[in-house]
Nucleic acid binder design. Structure first.
Lengths: 156, 156
DNA sequence: TTTTTGGTTTTTTTGTTGCAGAACTAAATG
DNA sequence: CATTTAGTTCTGCAACAAAAAAACCAAAAA
């Protein structure tokens, strides 16, 4: 076994969590490995070996992690290999601001439902109005809250 | 066709959105129908017919919507049927406060990874520290923000 | 220019999940 | 106590997705 058991179970946990968040288990494993390995960057080939996965699986999952801005590919002159590392410029706040879009979708649905109703003052309509108000308040407020992060912790 | 086309497409949209949020398309359809029907409550049987779905599918999906506190079952004396309506006491803020758990999981992973690292001051460790700080700040702050909602809009 | 290396794209295999249909259960009615 | 009603649970299938295998391609090396 090439890496410690604690680390293996950590990698698997990360796999499960990322899977539950909508990506794949394998992409979670890759992220997990990059988090616990003491190497600063890791080659494509090493990922295949350590995670016991096929090249194709690593290839596709590495790509999704890159588009999510979680990791970054590194290439070196005189070296054909590609290495990957945790994206040093990852901005979690930005990431979550983008995710707020889903809440906005919800809000659009509530408004539309309200339009489609004949009686705009029955229980269901009031439910919808309440929901619209909440989501309007929440999306705006949450976004403003997250924006405060930028500059909060200057990288020393 | 028993309901208007605008409403049908609304129902389908809701299905797609709820599906993308981790539940099933059918549960989204049920919620969507309850949002646009002018009836205040709808019977199990009506859901089957309007959504052209089997009893089993309605049964299981209605249950998940109930556990999510989105809808509420209503029974009436002298009537064997069960009716469903949008949960009048649904608290969206509460709902999202519970969802924050996922962010906490993330944070737990970051801390654990940091523990497992040998060199606690290399790039990856700093990435992890930054992430821990962000998630600590974000989960607490978001929770407090959401708590402000309660009492913000007294149901007049 | 041929071979090797490093990775990508395409195709198969395998596993999962949502839904329908049938069998089942509980309660109310005759 | 048999029958009907209303809904639940189990089984199986079709659709889909994740990962593996295989075919492929580009760049560097021989």
């Amino acid at each position: 076994m090439s890496i410690y058991n604690e680390r293996i179970s950590f990698i698997e946990e990360t796999g499960i969590l990322l899977e539950s968040m909508g990506t794949t288990r394998m992409s979670g494993r890759i992220l997990g490995y990059l988090m616990v390995t003491d190497k600063e960057m890791v080659s494509f080939d090493e990922l295949c070996q350590v995670l016991q996965a096929s090249k194709s699986s690593i290839s596709t999952n590495v790509k999704t992690l890159i588009t999510l801005h979680f990791i970054k590919p590194i290439t070196l002159p005189g070296d054909r290999k590609t290495y990957y590392m945790l994206a040093p410029d990852l901005n979690w706040a930005e990431y979550h601001i983008k995710r707020i879009e889903q809440l906005k979708h919800m809000n659009r649905l509530f408004r539309k439902a309200l339009e489609l109703r004949v009686n705009k003052n029955d229980k269901s309509s009031r439910w919808l109005k309440m929901s619209v108000e909440f989501y309007e308040w929440a999306t705006e407020g949450y976004k403003n809250f997250l924006k405060q992060w930028t500059g909060k912790k200057p990288k020393e």
